[in-house]
Design a protein around this nucleic acid. Sequence first.
DNA 1: CTTGATTCAGTTGTAGGATGATATGTATCA
DNA 2: TGATACATATCATCCTACAACTGAATCAAG
Lengths: 247, 247
Amino acid sequence: MKQRLAAIGTVEALPHRVAAFLSREIDSGELNPGTRLPTEQQLSEKFGVSRNVVREAIAQLRADGMIEARQGVGAFVLAPEQRASIRIDGEALKDTENMERLFELRCILEAESAALAAERRGQEHLDAIKAALDRMSGEERWEEGSIDADLLFHREIARATGNSYIHTFISFVCEQIRRSIHYARLTNPLHDLVDVNVGEHVRIYEALVAGDPKAAEAAMRAHIIGAAERVGVKLPAARAKHTGKGK
Amino acid sequence: MKQRLAAIGTVEALPHRVAAFLSREIDSGELNPGTRLPTEQQLSEKFGVSRNVVREAIAQLRADGMIEARQGVGAFVLAPEQRASIRIDGEALKDTENMERLFELRCILEAESAALAAERRGQEHLDAIKAALDRMSGEERWEEGSIDADLLFHREIARATGNSYIHTFISFVCEQIRRSIHYARLTNPLHDLVDVNVGEHVRIYEALVAGDPKAAEAAMRAHIIGAAERVGVKLPAARAKHTGKGK
DNA sequence: CTTGATTCAGTTGTAGGATGATATGTATCA
DNA sequence: TGATACATATCATCCTACAACTGAATCAAG
């Protein structure tokens, strides 16, 4: 009883299709956490593909932390909370709702990180941050380049916290946002989405130099809220908090 | 000229090892974006594994968006900005005893999330949080069980923010901490690392019920700082902030 | 009946070859 | 010169076989 895999216009490879199918079944709850998947043999028959293809699909799901395979036993669906890795697919970023959530998360992470960085930054951190700032405000306002510099600026601040987890997480979120913007420009090239407000960055940098955590946090918060607005995302009840100084 | 793959204590599967090896080469810049990888044949000879193994490794890297394979041509290293998805692997983060950093990140995420949750929580969220709270303070203080309930409590709060990214990130961080504790107990079984302070949790819950963001944030911050201390982690300059009320 | 070791079937992990599909370069020819 | 056909290289898929491991059934000994 072969099952037709969605053969859409996409020329996606077979393993990807199989993985997507299983992934949907898991997300939709048809395959509850803890249940065992059919054997590779059965899956290969069900989908009408070779066992190799099934294996690659399962390897992918396993890398995503959705399932766990035990030799000699089988493959089991994992609960979301026990997944060992986070993965956000590019597909999931194409609507503004997600952008909103991403910016919200970014605001939380970066605001406090800026405060930490203000306390802990060393001279080499300040130098690196300054370099990114210069690149950003530099001669040419080449779009991609200035966005790169912008992200570098934020990553360097995260690095200055001395906490590698924070650095990793912020890099991750920033990269997601960059991709979203990149994609948005492709679909709507007229709209200039470049968001490089040098003034806001300078304020952050000055607070870091001064070693003032509260000022750094406030400046970063204001900056991210502003950045969100400039790309058309309104942070819902952005918890103005002590952002009273807002823009 | 076979190349020894790092055969560490871990019994990781071969595809994972190959993928990790290539991944490091890419991240370290030895393989620049645009570069073509050796053919599957060459890689299988180089590592002394079958092509199937190489294929699964490449499939994994491709799923992570690090490389792109074109049929009939080869596999190419992608630049970070053209990656279609990004992943944070738990394995890559647990190199040392960085509980400190984990707790610091957790503090940042959860404190603000608690504030958001206080504003947005619905009745069903409160019910779920209450249920976890009851399980925690319930009859039996079975270690694993109460830890599960503890984590559930925190995850439910994250869910109440309505931001799936926040939920994902906090779940991830909590899971990492749980594993670290689990591992620590294995190596040091004498030390009782169970950390379930019901009182602190109750205070958080009450703030959520009251819909008071500031109180929720303060309570959560105090709780996580306390939790860190109870497992022997001193948050360095935990940025007491408005946590003046701390224990 | 209980207990323990052994065997056996089932499943994933790995190996290696064969064939199809696709892109690229090369040689031939008008 | 330009276009076409061919040859080659590579990935994609399929196939079979075996190794490693697990869990349960079987069976013998007490």
